[in-house]
Design a protein around this nucleic acid. Structure first.
Length: 673
RNA sequence: GCGGAUGUGGCGGAAUGGUAGACGCUACAGACUUAAAAUCUGUUGUCCUUUUGGGCGUGCGGGUUCGAGUCCCGCCAUCCGCACCA
């Protein structure tokens, strides 16, 4: 048996095996991340060095919503159907109550109603893919039951089982207010239920709502007795207060976040340290018996969990009553391990997970880097884990990662043979638009460009190009072009150029001349490079840092021998060391300077960052007509005079009246005619 | 459907509202060479022009501004996340 996640089920079959999938109730281990939902949400506010995108994704994932939970009673009974709504202000617009197919009330009714039973079956078959949900029709089954409206016991509403109501959110039941909810409106139109307007944004206060588009915008309450004229927010508060006062409902907060299912029925994971005892129930493995180790004599030749069928591993005595008991054979989701590895990384004592004092010195992680694909799962789990450890007093750290940088994904084209088996890029070759499998000569199909993944085999092993060009050239290549936050389609075009640059750099280090003399222009370039490269590396803009090193190399090559040039050569070795460490170290030794790893980043002379001449643009009516090289800090009137003296400018003005002249110091002159 | 991002030469990509295309790749031409490789020099957005020059250009359409790749409004396309969440 294999257990699949929702996203691994396609058309009711396993995505890989194609085996039919059935739903079964399994008892599994969950971690109660929902207890931390609010904290995790609040904590996002303090993570100001995280990308907004990731914070927003987590916020949406946690999905906090506030509203009213209230009971629609069966007439003459205290029993009823509990409903959650974020729009208690629209209660007077209610026209039906809808419950999920899995709702207990529906289940109970179905026992004696084959038609309902069939409808429920139908709902379950409904797909979960985007397209299916988009096109899925709103369908309902009138149960014949009615419930009392909480605000008016004489008003009875019909109860439907509806395919669009989810059992695992809220109470599994809703009241439908068609005028102000699109799904409810679709449903009401189909089953010809009343549609009453209770929110109006202007003149339209007619209680009879027309059209097929629900109104969900702001406005004032209408057709709602004592609430008429209130704002939506006032009405919400009003209804909740009334419900609480009268005892038929209460304000409630709902989360979309669900508990974290950590059970995996497979070998490669941390054993869940629990022993099941007939008498004592689930008993934790005592601390002195931790860690529980996986057995090594296992076989993988038949499907299923090898731990389950191991002859002895699960047979243990209960730690409490010492009767024969059974070890839990589920293992933990590997996300569990990645939820605290950074704490272990910070301190690695023997015999316990981490040393609190040392870990607290290092944490939180100053700069965490990972792909966006971890925006929710890993990063939310790690935040949860850290808070949970903090709550049980094991560490005084709330947020694990102070600053987050999400690098883009590396993508590559995918290839398949005609049977749909994935092929690696090395297995195929291209001839025009035709792809063939190198080994067999059979045709191959080039597919989408996707994130590199082992399952689709569109991965490239860097070892090959490392062998060919060396680790430094490959490193330089990977840093040089694309900014790291952007997705990147892997291509080796350009690696040749990088390899050439590495050679160039090496040749430069052989050109120390011992000459005297200063080259002010080169000194300036050198110091601008020190400042620029340093700032770019700090900002993780490695591609820009690389460009500035190229610039400096070009300048050095053009310069005549001088003390300045020798200094520039030493500097460029230092600047490139983070990106081509092996070569830089070798070159530094050649220059007789010891270990580059011990060297500080070169100092910048701020005086040399300032140019004493600048090139300014001269525009006529916003169009560039000339550029002039002038002394930096030149007075505006002089800039204007020089600009007007330009022949090209005079030609462009062509005798027209000058209406206005805009002068931006050290940048441009714009003459408006 | 909701939320978010992205869109600039043949390609990867630069540009505090102020010279668009830095830097690299590719391509082409030249130097060196018996020849090739390596290296070096130059050209390389596009159109018109012999040149000098000039027109047009940052997905599309508007707007603000002396001046817009950058700001505002409205579209389009692609990608990512969530998705009948009441």
């Amino acid at each position: 048996m294999t257990v699949l996640a929702n996203e691994q089920v396609i058309d009711g079959k396993g995505w890989r095996s194609g085996a039919l999938v059935e739903r079964r109730k399994l008892s599994q281990w969950f971690l109660k991340i929902t207890d931390f939902a609010d904290e995790l949400l609040e904590g996002l506010g303090g993570l100001d060095q995280w990308p907004d995108k990731v914070r927003l994704m987590q916020e949406n994932w946690i999905g906090k919503s506030q509203g009213l939970k209230c009971r629609f009673k069966f007439p003459g009974s205290s029993d009823g159907i509990d409903v959650f709504t974020t729009r208690p202000d629209t209660m007077f617009g209610a026209s039906f109550v809808a419950i999920a197919a899995d709702h207990p009330v529906a289940q109970k009714l179905a026992a004696n109603a084959p038609e309902l039973q069939a409808f429920i079956e139908d709902c379950r078959k409904g797909g979960t893919t985007a397209a299916e949900i988009d096109t899925a029709e709103k369908k309902g089954f009138n149960t014949g039951l009615t419930v009392e409206h909480p605000l008016d016991a004489s008003w009875h509403l019909p109860v439907y089982v509806a395919n669009f109501v989810l059992m695992d959110y809220g109470t599994g039941a809703v009241f439908g207010c068609p005028a102000h909810d699109q799904r409810d409106l679709d449903f009401a139109r189909k089953y010809d239920l009343p549609v009453t307007r209770v929110v109006a944004d202007g003149d339209e206060t007619d209680s009879n709502f027309q059209g097929d588009t629900a109104y969900t915008g702001p406005g004032r309450i209408v057709n709602s007795h004592w609430m008429d004229g209130l704002t939506i927010d006032q009405a919400k508060a009003d209804v909740i207060a009334k419900a609480e006062a009268e005892g038929w409902g209460e304000g409630q907060t709902q989360y979309r976040l669900r508990d974290w299912g950590v059970s995996r029925q497979r070998y490669w994971g941390t054993p869940i340290p629990i022993i099941h005892c007939e008498a004592c129930g689930a008993v934790p493995v005592p601390e002195n018996q931790l860690p529980v180790k996986l057995p090594e004599d296992v076989s993988f030749d038949i499907p299923g969990n090898p731990l389950d069928r191991h002859p002895t591993w699960s047979k243990v005595d209960c730690p409490q009553c010492h009767q024969a008991a059974r070890r839990e054979t589920d293992t933990l989701d590997t996300f569990v391990d990645s939820s605290w590895y950074f704490i272990r990384f910070a301190s690695q004592p023997g015999g316990k997970p981490f040393d609190r004092t040392i870990a607290e010195q290092w944490l939180p992680v100053d700069q965490y880097i990972g792909g966006v694909e971890h925006a929710i799962l890993h990063l939310l789990y790690a935040r949860f884990w850290t808070r949970a450890l903090s709550k049980i007093g094991m560490i005084d750290v709330k947020e694990p990662f102070a600053s987050l940088f999400t690098q883009g994904m590396v993508t590559h084209q995918t290839y398949q043979d005609t049977d749909g088996n994935w092929l690696t890029p090395e297995q195929v070759k291209r001839d025009g638009d035709i792809w063939t499998i190198i080994e067999t000569g059979e045709p191959a199909v080039a597919g989408r460009i996707e994130k590199m993944s082992k399952s689709k085999k569109n991965v490239v092993d860097p070892d090959d190009i490392v062998d060919q060009y060396g680790a430094d050239a490959v490193r330089w290549f990977m840093l040089s072009d694309s900014p790291p936050e952007r997705d990147l389609e892997w291509s080796e075009s350009g690696i040749e150029g990088c390899w050439r640059f590495v050679q160039r750099l090496w040749r430069l280090t052989g050109q120390i001349s011992g000459a005297d003399g200063q080259d002010k222009a080169l000194d300036r370039k050198t110091h601008q490079a020190i400042a620029g490269v340093g700032a770019d590396i700090e900002a993780l803009s490695f591609n820009k840092a690389v460009a500035k090193i190229y610039d400096l190399a070009n300048a050095i090559e053009k310069a005549a021998p001088s003390a300045s040039r020798d200094a520039a050569i030493r500097t460029i070795v230092l600047l490139s060391a983070p990106m081509v460490p092996h070569l830089a170290e070798e070159a530094w030794t050649k220059l007789g300077e010891g270990m580059i790893a011990d060297m500080p980043w070169p100092d910048v002379d701020p005086a040399l960052l300032v140019e004493d001449e600048v090139t300014i643009a001269v525009q006529v009516k916003g169009k560039l007509r000339d550029t002039l090289t002038v002394a930096k800090g030149l007075r505006q009137e002089e800039m204007q005079a020089l600009a007007l003296a330009s022949q090209k400018v005079q030609h462009a003005i062509d005798g027209a009246d000058i209406r206005k002249v805009i002068v931006v110091p050290d940048r441009l002159v714009n003459i408006v005619i």
